[in-house]
Amino acid sequence: MARIANRRQKIGGWVLIIVLAVITFVYLVPFLYIINTSFKPWTGIKEYPPKVIFKPSIGSFIRIFTSRTVYPPGEVPTEEEMARMKWYERIVYRETNEEVVRLGDLPRRYLNSIIICSISTIITVILGTITAYGFSRFKVRGKDDLLFFILSTRMLPPVVVVIPVFLMFRFLGLTDTHIGLILLYVAFNVSFAVWVLKGFIDEIPTEYEEAAMVDGYTRFQVFRKIVVPQATTGIAATAVFCFIFSWNEYAFAFLLSRKIAQTVPAWLPYQMGVLGYDWGAAAAGTFIFLVPVMVFTIILRKHLLRGITFGAIRK
């Protein structure tokens, strides 16, 4: 009888696995569609019904990275010119009959995203760690109110705050600068960082620090030698979070940057018109932008999942 019950359980388990696998696959279809589209050759992009199997081309990626002009009708590059063309210029010419003029706007925007997100993440994590330690270990008068204040700044809809921030930045000349966006992202992420890191630091038993203090170390030395090493996982997870948040941020970037400091999310959605409804290039841009986050998520999944739930539960 035990055997029968076991077998029934096993079958049930398999059914569950299959159901979950199907759900997951269906869930990922939009991603698959984007990947599929971004690798389609120029002629295949607007085929309907869409094909799943085709000869992949990286033409779309080249187009999103470059600025191009169309050859005038009838004008054809000579054989000599063809021979001098770089490999990517040849692909572009063959697919869309265009000439590559220069590097496009994307690399610049991509670099902006990386610079702004990295620097703001580093500052956020440093500020977040020390503040979280302060709140975790010391009696602070009105601590709960202060913590609530820190948290509540995160609940403000960006669209509400953006008007005065816009005015302030304009007054200070911070509009469309890297520093402006970095400051803003630090301010908006630090509340989250404090909350999550406070949770991690709360979990480190205070006895470790007390032992070290009795052993002849000052508070600050203890913080550096005992607390920070033990909170490394938490700090790393928080850093990834802050990075992803600022990487994905749209409202501020869109309103407070025009060109110099513009990040990818503020730029990419407006290229549809510019690209002349080049679906392939749009898909390729999307793909390139999403890939780092996907990789991060999959590599750091354990910390990340813990962080997401943890951050929420704490609040």
């Binding site: 994905n248 941020e249 749009a282 999307t286 999944r301 997401i308």
Partner: peptide, 25 residues
């Protein structure tokens, strides 16, 4: 664990880019 992570992917993405993606979709 992998299935959970794959399911979580959408929420780690930039909403505006996800929007763009769905616009195409």
């Amino acid at each position: 664990g992998l299935i959970t992570t794959l399911l979580v992917l959408p929420m780690t993405m930039s909403p505006v880019i996800v929007g763009l993606m769905w616009q195409l979709f």
